[in-house]
Structure formats: C-alpha cells, structure tokens
Amino acid sequence: MSVKLSSAPQRLTIALGGEVDHHTAAAMRLEADAAIEAKLAPKVRLDFCDVTFMDSSGVGFVLGRYRLVSSYGGQVEVTGLEPRLYKMMRMAGLERFVTLRKKEGKSK
C-alpha cells in the first residue's frame, strides 16, 4: 500500500499504489484527507495507475474523497483505471460525481 502526493498550482494528485481493500483504505484515507485539507485544491486527481488489486472499498474511497472535496467546491478526477476498476466504478454510478479515466495506451 502506498500513497504518493504531488501538486501543481490548481491541482493535487494523490497516486495510490498496491492493493486497495477495506484494510488498506483506512490508512490511505487518513493520508489523502490530510493532504486535501491542507491544500484545498480546486482539482483533486486520484490516480489508480499503480493499484494492483481493488475491491468495492476503492469505490467507497472515491466516494468519501468526493464528499470532502465537493464540500469546499472542488472537483475530483479518477485516472489510471484498469478495465476491472473502471467497471466497478461505473457499476457504482460514480461517473455522476467524478470524472473517470481509463489507463492509457499499454498495447496488448
């Protein structure tokens, strides 16, 4: 489990790595929320590019961050989604709240 933070003038990027489940999401949430609250960036990007496993806890994670970011008027974008992760987030109807972007390229 890893959380990497980087920021540009208007944007905070939170890159998750490893396995996202109910157990790991708890620690990810603490780190992510501390960064979000410190920066209050208009755009928050949650990057799942290095996530190797995710269950529905990942959907809960996105929903929770959406609630926090929208509370101060910011927007959330979710990037780097593998087809399986994209499918789960769509199934949850997350695209009504956040922008969902699939993982790019990677020809197979």
Partner: peptide, 14 residues
C-alpha cells in the same frame, strides 16, 4: 454509510 459503498454483493454477483 460513510466509506462503505454498499456494493459488496453486487460485486460478488458481477
């Protein structure tokens, strides 16, 4: 509520 998406069984079925 809160951080749980309520999707556990939906994901299992899917």
């Amino acid at each position: 509520g809160g951080e749980r998406a309520g999707l556990g069984f939906a994901v299992m079925e899917s």
